[in-house]
């Protein structure tokens, strides 16, 4: 009697275990999906999205051409931000195009409260970098880096300095004191991503800009064409 019951108890136990494991796996998967959503959120601010949609809905009445243009720019931004994986490296050329779409839309939203200029070394255009590291810096500059007259003046530079790619985003705002010393999740995210891909070879620093304001600088190993890890492998051969 006892011997006929034991296999059933074992079977029931095994099924319970399987059910629990399966549940855990589902939870883990849900958590991973959430992490992915959080990652996206730190990259393109949803409020930026809503403000842009709000602006488009007004432009539809009095400037359809500009509405059209903003929709196209926004689509390009969304396509990039939804498609690029975190570790995915892209060419500086594409990163700059992304920034130009972003700043172009912000210019429509903020009008004369935003002035910006890009100063990009053509020799650096094919350099590889993790996608969307510069946009959060620009966003930070235009939200926290306004001058006393309420205008955000932003300069973006990219150039090659020997073995390094240097990316600068400058504003003429109140400097580090204006940010209250806190970095914000977007900037913390950049630091984590750079560390993950390049280890100590990349540097991300916020420093006072000469003449007032803040300069955010990213310096990372200059390489073209291949993912960074592959380049290291090639070097070793």
């Amino acid at each position: 009697m006892l011997f006929t019951v034991i296999p059933w108890i074992l079977l029931a136990g095994a099924m319970l275990m399987a059910a629990l494991l399966w549940r855990d796996r589902r939870r883990l998967r849900a958590r991973l999906a959430q992490a992915e959503i959080r990652r996206l959120r730190t990259q393109l601010d949803p409020h930026f999205l809503y403000n842009t949609l709000n602006a488009i809905s007004e432009l539809g009445y009095n400037d359809p051409q500009l509405a059209d243009q903003v929709i196209t720019q926004l689509s390009q931004l969304l396509r990039k931000s939804l498609a690029d994986g975190e570790q995915h490296e892209i060419a500086l050329r594409d990163e700059i195009a992304f920034l130009e779409h972003y700043l172009g839309i912000q210019k429509v939203l903020l009008r004369d409260r935003l002035q910006y200029g890009l100063d990009i070394d053509p020799a650096a255009l094919s350099a590889r970098l993790p996608g969307m590291v510069m946009q959060p810096l620009a966003e930070n500059a235009l939200t926290h880096g306004m001058s006393a007259d309420g205008i955000a003046r932003i300069r973006i530079r990219a150039c090659r300095d020997g073995a390094n790619l240097i990316l600068d985003v400058e504003d003429e705002g109140p400097g580090l004191s204006g940010a209250g010393g806190s970095l914000g999740i977007g900037l913390a995210n950049i630091r984590a991503r750079l560390r993950h891909v390049y280890g100590d070879a990349a540097v991300f620093a916020l420093q006072p800009r000469e003449g007032g304001g803040l300069m955010a600088r990213i310096s990372l190993p200059f390489h073209e064409g291949f993912a960074f890890r592959e380049t290291q492998d090639l070097d070793r051969r």
Binding site: N51, A55, E58
Partner: peptide, 8 residues
């Protein structure tokens, strides 16, 4: 702060 939002 956004002119288009005010216009709307």
């Amino acid at each position: 702060d956004m002119p288009l939002s005010r216009a709307r």
